[in-house]
Amino acid sequence: MVNRYLKAFFLTLAILIVGLVAISFIDNSRISSISDSVESSSLELQASQQLFLYEAVFPDETLCSVLNKRIELQKNQSISVLNEIESAQNNSLFGNTGLLKKKFLLQNVELYLLIKKAENDCGSKEIIPILYFFPDKVYCADCASQAKVLDSVAAKCSNVRVFAFPTDLDVPVIDLLSAKYSVKTHPSLVVNDKKLEGVISEPGLLKEFSCRQ
């Protein structure tokens, strides 16, 4: 009689273990696929950065054209990757995406600075960076709309790079930028050094720069 309660206990335990192992496998594979894409663009970024360093050490005017080309090739899927990381965090039991997120953000900051440096050093104005400031820890319905608009603009215009900068995650450069443009409300956008507050619709945003298909 006691026997079947024990048997059932061990069977249930086995199911629990199998289930948890399966879940940890699913969680890990979910996170590692995002991690791979972050990792690969990180290498690209490093290559561009080294070119800048090379230029700083051995001044060479001809490097500008190479640099511009590289920068232009450098794509980022800022918001979508951020969403993926977000959803992996919310939907996994074991995965911790904190580090991955931080790494991704730092990488974005770096790309933004490189674009700005290319603009300053080589006078290149090909790429239009849009800074998008939003809170990460609290939900904001307008930010969800704004992100959707930005996604669609980024898909339409090949010269646009969107940089999603959460203002509450203690990333030093983001804090500096948000202070520089005195960002107070969410969402806020910065396009061509101009700050736009509140949700900006797609037509409204397209007026701010020339979109290259």
């Binding site: 289930g19 879940i23 939907n91 669609s152 619709s201």
Partner: peptide, 24 residues
Amino acid sequence: SWLALNAGISGLVPAAPVLHSSIY
């Protein structure tokens, strides 16, 4: 918020929901 933008209804379709691992 999206309706206030007047940007078309198609944007309202939510992304395919991602299941939480524990649902398995």
